[in-house]
Structures are given as C-alpha cells and as structure tokens.
Amino acid sequence: MTSWLDRPLLGFDTETTGTDVTTDRIITVALVYSVAPGRDGETVATWLIDPGVAIPEAAQAVHGISDAHVRAHGLPPAEALDEVAALLARALEQDVPIVAYNGSFDLQILEADLARCGLPTLRERLGREIAPVIDPLVIDRGVDRFRKGKRKLVDLMAHYGVEQDGRLHTADVDVSSTLDVLRALAARHPEIAEMPLDELFRRQGEWHRDWAENFNRFLERQGRTPDAPLAWPL
C-alpha cells in the first residue's frame, strides 16, 4: 500500500510580528511543495509582506526582518495572503497535506490576518475543517510522550539526526527542515507512515488534547493560568 509519505506534501511556515495570533501580523510566508526527499524534490515559493505595523525588536531579533526592509520590498497583506490561501486551499482540496511545525499557530494567525484583510478565511474557502494537516511536533509528543528535553524544531532535528545549516527562522529553511524531520520521524516510527491520512489527522487531535490537558495541569500546579487550547489545529 502506498503511504501518504510517498505522495506530494506542502510545507507551510510564517514569520510574524509576534506570538499573539489575534493581534500580530504575518511578515513572511513560505510554501514548499515536496514530491521527494531532498532539496531537488522541492519547489519553493515565498512572500514578503508589509504588515502595516511596526515590527517589535524582539521579533526582529528572531527572524532579522526590519521595518525598513518590509516597507521597501513587502507586498500589501491582502495581495500576498490571498495568493497563499488560494494555494493552500487548492492543495487541501486535492488531499495534499499541509505540513507545518507547530502549525496551529501558523494556521490561526493566517485565518486572523485573512479576516482582517476582509478576505475569505481558509476554512471558508474549503467549506469545512482545515485538513489534512500534519504537524511533526504534535506527532513527536504523541509517539514519544515521556521523552525529556525541549521540542523546538532545532531540538527535533538533533533528536532525529537531521542536519541544519544554521539559518533557521528563515521561513523557507524552516519548512524544508520540518519536512526532513517528518520523514525522519516516520522512518523511526513506521506506524505513522502506515496510517491513512484521515486517521493520522484524527490521532493528532487526540495527542494534542492529551498534551494540552497535562500541560494545563502543570500550569495549575505552578499557580499559573491553564491556557493551552484543547482543540487542534484550530
């Protein structure tokens, strides 16, 4: 039986003005259409967007994109995001999975930015839930729940033996690295590659809920607000 891993995948990542999906804005988007492992099997498209608001210094320190650069070279948000959403919707309609690391964040901020621009959201374009989505972070938490240590993209790259060239936090590099991690993860846990896409999507929702419930209990024990959402990806 052919695995979903042997079919095309569409990697997706954003760089933003911050981490609040309701108020922050998208600055860059990368889509990487992958038909085979390795960079020769990838087609990359990127967008630089002028968000219309100042980019905080903390965000600039992460991705290195300045206000001056986006004002000189960035596209209007509505133009760029409409193109991105159309490509994502087309892929999902063809059952090509969106692959995104911590993809819930990217999808939520995309939906908020589309609505802010007066454009149909991705969910509205599809007329259904946003699926199939594959998130290596969610899968890793599910199949190796009790492993200690951090689980940022760079940490999973080290854990699964994926090399990187030091240019993470550039959206297209992050996407290619995410695709590499997904393939390495599936090689180590072959049951993932053997699952039908709809089952893998459902299982990710369950794994995320288990993680979020446990994390919220941890926050409560620390006297902090238990604010990890239980639903995934939106």
Rank of each mutant, 00 (worst) to 15 (best):
L5I: 10
R7Q: 15
P8W: 04
E15G: 05
T16M: 11
D20A: 12
T22S: 14
I27E: 04
V29I: 11
P37V: 12
G38A: 10
D40H: 12
D40F: 02
E42T: 00
T43Q: 15
V44K: 04
W47E: 03
W47F: 08
L48D: 08
V53K: 04
A54R: 14
A58T: 13
A59V: 10
Q60V: 15
V62G: 02
D67S: 08
A68V: 12
A72Y: 00
H73P: 00
G74V: 05
L75D: 11
P77C: 05
A80H: 09
L87T: 11
L88N: 07
L92A: 09
E93H: 08
D95G: 00
D95E: 13
G103Q: 09
F105I: 07
I109L: 13
E111F: 08
A112M: 13
L114S: 02
L114N: 02
C117E: 14
P120D: 06
T121V: 06
R123C: 07
E124V: 05
G127I: 05
I130A: 07
I134D: 07
D135E: 08
I139D: 04
V143T: 06
D144C: 09
K148N: 12
R151A: 13
K152R: 15
Y160V: 07
E163T: 13
D172P: 00
D172N: 06
V173M: 02
D174P: 09
S176K: 12
T178Y: 06
L179R: 10
D180V: 02
V181E: 03
L182N: 06
L185C: 06
P190Y: 01
E194C: 05
P196N: 09
E199H: 11
R202L: 12
W207C: 03
W207S: 03
W211N: 01
F215H: 14
N216A: 04
R221D: 04
Q222I: 00
R224Q: 15
A228P: 00
A228M: 15
L230C: 01
L230I: 02
A231E: 15
A231Q: 11
